[in-house]
């Protein structure tokens, strides 16, 4: 009997990730990153955010190109709906982070992925942000993420991928744990 050992192809360069892990363990300064975004208010609830540079590996870095994202509110809020709501952007970030993690973990475990689809839903009681009920929080009262994954793996292996991805997800951590936020303002 011949055994064929196939290497999964998920488009993740695990060797590079493991190399980076090893290198950054030795160079804590290079591991300190700063993520940035700028935003400009356009009109009403419509703003445009731009992401292009960040700091890491001991110096300034650039994305391949600059990315822009519009946020707005929907028409039911008497807005023009020129983009996703900011809270939907949070879901976008969570999905992107968890799916990237699933791909990386799958690659590391040599699991071939065929499709990874996430559906996210967050509950929110508007009585919070509208100041109607002080006991209702402004933010989500919970987030539900459901993954449908087609992969060469057992259901348990897939569950383990998803669990490990949450364990190492930056956005999952940002959402599930308190983060110190400083907002300042200056007059121009």
């Amino acid at each position: 009997m011949t055994t064929q050992t196939k290497t999964a192809e998920n488009g993740v360069n695990v060797a590079a990730l493991l190399g980076a892990r090893e290198a950054l363990a030795e160079a804590p300064e290079a591991a300190r990153f700063k993520w940035r975004a700028t935003s400009e208010w356009l009109k009403g609830t419509h703003s445009r955010a731009t992401v292009d540079g960040f700091y890491g590996l001991g110096g300034e870095q650039k994305h391949r190109q600059s990315y822009q994202f519009c946020t707005d509110h929907p028409e039911v809020f008497a807005s023009e709906d020129n983009g996703a709501t900011p809270v939907e952007m949070v879901l976008v970030g969570l999905a992107g982070c968890l799916s990237a993690g699933i791909a990386a973990v799958a690659q590391h475990r040599n699991i071939q992925l065929h499709s990874v689809k996430a559906t996210l839903e967050a509950g929110m009681d508007l009585q919070g942000i509208l100041g109607i009920d002080p006991n209702v929080r402004n933010g989500f009262d919970g987030i539900k993420v459901h993954y449908e994954i087609d992969a060469d793996a057992t259901a348990e292996q897939i569950a383990a991928l998803v669990a490990q991805s949450q364990k190492r997800s930056a956005v999952f951590d940002v959402i599930t744990n308190p983060t110190d936020v400083t907002v300042t303002a200056s007059k121009t």
């Binding site: 669990a163 490990q164 949450q166 364990k167 999952f172 951590d173 959402i175 599930t176 744990n177 308190p178």
Partner: peptide
């Protein structure tokens, strides 16, 4: 997990489900 204490209130992580899965 106890993640912080702010204004005299304890804050707990939303990761309980996942740590139970793990």
């Amino acid at each position: 997990r106890l993640a912080g204490i702010r204004d005299g209130k304890a804050q707990f992580s939303g990761s309980l489900r996942n740590v139970c899965s793990l």
